[in-house]
């Protein structure tokens, strides 16, 4: 077992983990952050995307021990209580989700993209989220959601 200290959604956690534990499994089972989900085993679907020290990663492809000393933000840490992050608001307004399973990863990928590029073109959005698969929406409304989120976040400056 390996001792780790990871800050998840603003709270510091100390834990003993088996080295083979994936970050996503520790988040779900160790911390109870079940908002972050697993959709594949080959790093394709992106459903497990979280921010690790502020950058998007697929938490199925990081060991929990590798997050030792790091800060993780999940979909559950994006806003608190009844608050909505602009990306969350935009996804609701633009119907950027249907079943919602890809949504935590898609939202976190969008947050990361907009952090780096606050006003992406449609092509930049499509390229920027191509590490996340969605089977419901055909991405049309996801792209619109990211565009609208960019607008909302620009408006806040």
């Amino acid at each position: 077992m390996q001792h780790i200290n990871v800050t998840v959604d603003g709270t510091s956690y100390e834990a003993e983990v088996e080295p083979r534990t994936l970050l996503v499994h520790w988040l779900r089972e160790g911390v109870g952050k079940v908002g972050t989900v697993v959709g594949c085993d080959t790093s394709n679907c992106g459903a497990c995307t979280v921010l690790l020290d502020g950058r998007s990663v697929k938490s199925c492809s990081v060991l929990a021990v590798q997050a030792d000393g790091c800060e993780v933000t999940t979909i559950q840490g994006l806003s608190t209580g009844d608050d909505w992050h602009p990306v969350q608001t935009a996804f609701k307004e633009c119907h950027g989700l249907q079943c919602g399973y890809c949504t935590p990863g898609m939202v976190m990928a969008a947050v990361d993209l907009l952090n780096e590029n606050p006003s992406p073109s449609e092509e930049e959005i499509r390229d920027g989220i191509h590490g996340n698969l969605c089977r419901c929406t055909g991405y049309h409304n996801i792209v619109k959601s990211v565009q609208y989120a960019a607008e909302l976040m620009g408006g806040r400056k």
Binding site: V34, S79, Q88, H95, P104
Partner: peptide, 15 residues
């Protein structure tokens, strides 16, 4: 706008 979305967008889901 959908009633379903608040929980799905906040990760408060019951898969």
């Amino acid at each position: 706008r959908r009633k379903e979305d608040a929980k799905l967008l906040h990760g408060r889901t019951n898969w």
